[in-house]
Amino acid sequence: MYNTYLTLLAKEWIESLRTSRLLIWTVIGVFFGILSPLSAYFLPEILSLVGATENIIITIGSIGYQDALKQYIKNFTQIGTIVVIILYMGSIAQEKSDGSLSFLLVRPVDRISILLAKITGAKIIIAIGQGAAILCMTLYSRYLFPDFPIARFIVANLFLFIYFLTIAVITISLSAMVTKPIIAAIGSLGFWILFSVIAMSRQLGNYSFTQVSDQMMQMTEGFPVSYTPTIGALVLMIVVIGIAYWRFSRWECTD
């Protein structure tokens, strides 16, 4: 089983390279890693230019690394979520509909290996793209904001990694349960919206994985961190994978 899993994982890796999945995610990471500190740093000048054309004076307080961090978290989580959903919506559903999944299933391959290899593949791709984002963000922020806390920022990115991983797990799991990639994408987006709404609730909100971005902010700024969103994300991933496996193991090739 382990050898099968490794073979499938290797296939996922090569597929990510050949289909540009890794490239797209890394470009997104690099883009936000560079854009966030730059846009924060130059925000006063951008606003004064806008004010000059409109004949108004815009004044804002001093700009610090916290502003770069806010931009990074906000932009990366919003656009990144959509990108992760698009990258992984067809991971299993597409293979079901085009028939390539049958190629695997007629071999001595257990379905849990297929599902876990997809998730591990996503984990690696997300980590690499996020690594590129961390590198760019660190280099630019350190240069523009000398007090930028590098170590805390790197550790805090673990929360963001868990956030993206949760999105990927939900998307891949839905992809294993349905036969059309678009349904997996809509379902995943629905989950995201649902948990964003739940995050507003006082009691349950602390367990919503969408709150992980707050944890990241708190940790980078050196405040004590509540781990309940991370626990919520891990529980959610386990439950979703379990349901996906249950459904996927009963799937029959009927097309």
Binding site: I14, D98, G99, S100, S102, F103, L104
Partner: peptide, 29 residues
Amino acid sequence: AQQVGYLAQMPTYYRWMSAYELLEFSGKL
């Protein structure tokens, strides 16, 4: 499954693989 080989009516394989890579992948599985 170890004793069986299968060719689908409309065979679809990974378009990004070469013929050799597909057989290599299949052999490993």
